[in-house]
Each structure stands twice: as C-alpha cells, then as structure tokens.
Design a protein around this nucleic acid. Structure first.
Length: 567
RNA sequence: UGGGGUAUAGUGUAACGGUAGCACGACUGACUCUGGAUCAGUUAGUUGGGGUUCGAAUCCCUGUACCCCAGCCA
C-alpha cells in the first residue's frame, strides 16, 4: 500500500478531491498517474509552473506518478532547443519524472494503427476538401455544417487513400483523415474533426519517417491511454474538447482516462501567452527568453527566484475553474519569504557616497564580525574590513533631513552596521554644489556597534570600505509593463505600447564587500537594507554582475511617497 | 435561448444546509544593530431579484456579467 501524503485535514482543491474520491472508490485500482504534456514550441513560464506543480504535486501526494511528455505532433513549430529548456526547467523546479521524458512522437505508429481501426469501423474517412472548403462545410457557431461529399466513401477506399497519404503520394493540404461524427453538432469540435493532415515536414525527433501527422484532439487521449494516465489535467479552453476526447477513446474502446480542466494562471503586470512572449524576444524588447524581466522559468531563475518560492506560490494560489489574475505582490511575498530564510547577508553600496572618518588612523584596518544570516544561526559569521575611507548609500544622507528621516545628516550620529557610531561633521561639495564627500568622526568605544554608555541611534547604515571594496555592475528591474493587465488594452493599441521604459536600470561602479569575491552564477544574497540579488550569468571574477531579484520592504519609501503626496 | 463554463473583501482562496474564515495588499502600533524579519491590531466580501427552510454563499426559480469554441495549432 502506498502512503497517502496528504494530511487528512488539509483542504483539497476540486481536482485533488476528485483524485481522493477515486482512490476511495477504487476507480483506478488505487493508481494515480498524471502527466505534464507541453508542446516543445516555446519556453515554459510561471503559468506552466502552476500546471507542473499541480500534476507532479498530485502524483507525489497520492503516491502516484507523473510523466513529462512532449506533445510533439506538429513538426512545423517544434524544436530540440525547446525540448532541452523545458526538461531543464522541470528539473530545476525540483520534480522527478524518471530518467527520460516521454514523447508523443514515439506513439505515431500506434496512433496510425488505431486510425486504421476507426476507418475499418466506418468511423473515419479520407476527405478531399481543401482547408477553406472544410471551413465552409463546418458551418458557424449558430448554424449547422453540411456533410462532406467524401463522407460516404467505403472503408476499403478510405483505407487505400489513407495508406497512400501515409506513403507520401499526395501533396500537403490535399487530403485529411476525419472522424465521422456529426456535422450538425452544437459543439463545433464534433463536426467531423480532422485527425490527420499531410505534412511533408522534418520532425525534430521522428525525422522524415512520417508525412501524415496527428492532430491534438486525436492524439492526446491516445497518448494518455497508452501511458495509463488516470487524470488528464488541462486548461479551461479544452472543456469543449472533452466530448471529442471521450468519443475517440470510446470509439476505439481502449483504456479511458478522465480529462479535468482548470483555469490557467494570470499575473498582474505581465503577459503569459506564448505568442506575446515570442514577440517580446523576436522584436528585442527583452534580451531573450531568459531575460530577468520575463515570466519564463528561465527568466525567473536568472532573476534570482528560487524553485522553492515558485512551488510555494503555486501551492498558495490553489486551482479553480474560473479565470483570475493573481497580484504580482503575492509572488513577491513567497519569494521574500524563502529568500529571507536562506540568503546570506552582504553589504553592498549601489550609489556610493564617500565618507572619510577624520579621526581614524590612516592605513589602519579593522576586521569586524558580521552575522551571515540572522534567520539561520548555522550560517555563521564573517569578517568585514573597516578603514578610514568608506562608502555609504547616497540616499542615506540628507543635508536638510525632513521629518521621519532617521539616517545621516550634518551633526547627527548613526551606526555603521557591525562597526562604529559615526557623526557627520562636514559636507564637501564640488563647484556645482553637488555633495561629493562627507567628513565624519567615529567613536572608538562603539566598536562592534554598541555604545557602552547605552546611548542610542535611530539608524543603522550599511557601508563598504573603499580600500577593500569590489566593483560591480548591478541591474535593477521593474515590471515589464506599466499596466496591471497588459492583455486588456483598447482596440488599436498594441500590447508592446505599454512596456515600462524603466524596467531595466544598469548601475555601474557599485561597491561590494570582499566576501562575495568568488560568487558564481546564480548565487543568491541579500544586500542588507536593499533587497535580494543574485549573480548574473554574465558575471566574471574580474567583472561582477548582479541582478536585483526583489527589493526588501521599504517603509521609508512609503513615508516618502506620502510626504510627496501631501506636497 | 448555438454550445460549453464561471461568479465569495482591492486581489486570491476556504466554508460541502448551522458563527462567512485565511493569505496577500493597504493602514495602526510594538520590537529591532537591516526603516528587513518578527509580533499585535484595523480595514473590507457572498453577482441582482424571488422562493424553500427554524436556518442559504451552499438547494430551487429567474435575471445579469464575464470566459472559451467556427486551425489541416496545441
């Protein structure tokens, strides 16, 4: 007996409820077998993660299995590059699909044989109508279609024609194999749907062995049946296809899984359709499928998202049957929650302002103890070097501080984290009046960050020692679109018109503490008081590059906004 | 009346005839060597209208709104 991992008290979504009920009733011999069946014609995105976590999650929770199966039935749109990226993404998310993914193209012969069965049963026929004629014969949403003149061909003739289709005797588009169902059905999918089309095309896996390729509706249930899938979970737009899914399996009288539909994921401030994502890439609105602003899994990975965060997100959003749009802030919440627990802290100054500690000895260096992660004691501590010339964040100083600004200002004392209390004594400006340097004094008694006399400061600043600092490039990101729902634009407006012009900001000359010297690609950090960052794939030891994953919550920024509103 | 679906705070999501709960967001406050984290609190909801019932988000009737379908795409 396999152990049920689902806690009995945990509320089940409607799909898990079906699975649980089926197990209770013994419907599938206590088996649970799902599948994630992407077409390899693009990169996976966060919406796919919802489906992946659903299918693999159910399998894991109920002691079943989940297949990664490529639905590669259309050679014109599919490429090996996509197979590879999809496989990598599913692995990265942390799901186990056995040694190798499965491919629908491996079932082509079996599908062909079944099509022959249907022809023999008089349930399928070869049709000579062109694509355009087929459309005319299909009728409209409100009017029935009419029968194809080829509909009453004998099984023998159909068999002969279908064999010759397969043998490559006919040009592309000249004939199709159709299911003989009902041209007057109110469900258009049932009006003699095409099962096979002629395509003299090279298949990325099957090579040139085939010139007839199965259509989705014909192929998909067969694939599920072959693999012994119990619950075939797909998105809402396939609800209308379910009767056809069932019809084929019944006509063939073979093992018959249950198709269940759920609503796909929508997220604010981004687009999720493959077409639009492809356009963003092709027209260079982003640098590629893995641009850190993209909602693709490769983009999120490069941005610094952890698989744990994405899985937590997918769990929390649950599944349902109606279209909803999830607030991007919820994704960020899941991200921060995981990153906060796991990211080593580091001090980095993005917009450096030079600070000279006038009473600190020239040439001297202090090694101060810093906590690597206050949320995780086992992460330990590290040494951070302190010296006479330092950098602080430019926005951490104001010559004329407004109310509620607690940071450094002339005459004010603050703490440098893990180091000393300092007091600003002089503000040095260039001829144009720009602040170029601050002179401060430090209190040696406060070494480590605490004053023996118990005096308090209102702010603690992060800082980096000039002499020891590493230079880095830091890339800041914002939403790719300015609109909450970039899909929903006025007619005549193209969705790319709402791309956020400030979605990428590149900072150079940032100063980072020396401990990150050996950071490698995708290492994640928290830059204290700023946000979570990861090393980019462009990063090299000689030229560090970091991506901002997500900012820390920033109450000062909120206060500032409110103050600006008042003015 | 083409057919198929769906409606619960700003956004998501529970409640399966018996106190409308949770999370995110927003707003207070406490604490803090990250204006982080944490903790406490406030805010706000059953698509409209009828019924059945001691009792309805839930059952019935009837409106309304939104989504999907006329690829030889998936």
């Amino acid at each position: 007996m396999t152990e049920e991992v689902n806690e009995p008290n945990e509320r089940l979504d409607f799909i898990r409820q079906i699975v649980a009920d089926d197990r209770a009733s013994g419907k599938w011999d206590k088996r649970t077998h799902t599948r994630f069946p992407p077409e390899p014609n693009g990169y996976l995105h966060i919406g796919h993660a919802k489906s992946i976590c659903l299918n693999f999650g159910i399998a894991a929770e109920f002691g079943g299995k989940c297949n990664l199966r490529f639905d590669d039935t259309n050679p014109c749109k599919e490429e090996q590059e996509y197979v590879d990226s999809i496989t990598d993404d599913v692995k990265w998310l942390g799901w186990d699909f056995g040694d190798e993914p499965l491919f629908a193209s491996d079932y082509f012969q079996q599908m062909y044989d079944w099509a022959v069965d249907l022809i023999k049963k008089g349930k399928a026929y070869v049709c000579d109508l062109t694509a355009e004629e087929t459309r005319d014969y299909r009728g409209t949403l409100k009017e029935p279609g009419k029968n194809s003149p080829c509909r009453d061909r004998s099984p023998e003739e159909n068999l002969d024609l279908f064999t010759r289709m397969k043998n490559g005797e006919f040009p592309d588009g000249s004939r199709t194999l159709k299911a003989k169902i009902d041209m007057a059905s109110p469900n258009i999918n049932l009006r003699d749907p095409v099962m096979y089309r002629i395509l003299h095309a090279h298949h990325h896996r099957a090579g040139d062995g085939w010139c007839v390729y199965p259509m989705y509706d014909w192929a998909h249930g067969l694939e599920d049946s072959i693999e012994g899938i119990t619950h075939s979970i797909c998105t809402l737009e396939f609800e209308n296809h379910r009767p056809l899914y069932d019809w084929f399996l019944d006509a063939l009288d073979i093992y018959h899984p249950q198709q269940i539909e759920f609503a796909r994921l929508n997220l604010t401030y981004t687009v999720m359709s493959k077409r639009k994502l492809l356009e963003l890439v092709k027209d260079n609105h982003v640098s590629g499928w893995d641009d850190p602003r993209m909602p693709t899994l490769s983009g999120l990975r490069r941005r610094g998202f952890s698989p744990e965060a994405i899985r937590a997100f997918c769990k929390i959003i649950s599944v349902n049957k109606f279209n909803s749009t999830i607030d991007y802030a919820l994704l960020e919440h899941c991200l921060r929650q995981h990153l906060n627990k796991t990211s080593p802290r580091v001090m980095a100054v993005l917009d450096p302002l030079k600070v000279v500690i006038t009473n600190y000895p020239e040439g001297q260096t202090d090694e101060l103890d810093a906590v690597n992660n206050p949320e995780d004691e086992s992460a330990g501590t590290r040494k951070v070097p302190f010296s006479k010339v330092l950098y602080i964040e430019r926005e951490d100083f104001m010559e004329e501080p407004p109310k509620k600004f607690f940071r450094l200002a002339p005459g004010r004392e603050v703490r440098l984290r893990y180091a000393y209390f300092i007091t600003c004594t002089d503000v040095i400006k260039d001829d144009a009046g720009n602040i170029v340097e601050l002179h401060c004094t430090y209190d040696p008694e406060t070494r480590g960050g605490d004053a023996p006399d118990g005096r308090r400061v209102k702010a603690t600043l992060h800082w980096v020692s000039d002499e020891h600092a590493l230079d880095a490039e830091v890339r800041l990101y914002d939403h790719l679109f300015t609109l909450e729902n970039p899909d929903n634009v006025e007619e005549g407006t193209h969705f790319t018109e709402n791309i956020n012009p400030d979605s990428l900001k590149v900072l150079t000359g940032c100063k980072i503490e020396p401990s990150v010297k050996d950071a490698t690609s995708l290492d994640r950090f928290q830059f204290e008081r700023i946000g979570y960052f990861c090393t980019d794939k462009d990063s090299e030891p000689e030229k560090l590059v970091f991506n901002k994953t997500v900012g820390l919550k920033d109450t000062w920024a909120k206060v500032q906004k409110q103050q600006q509103k008042k003015k």
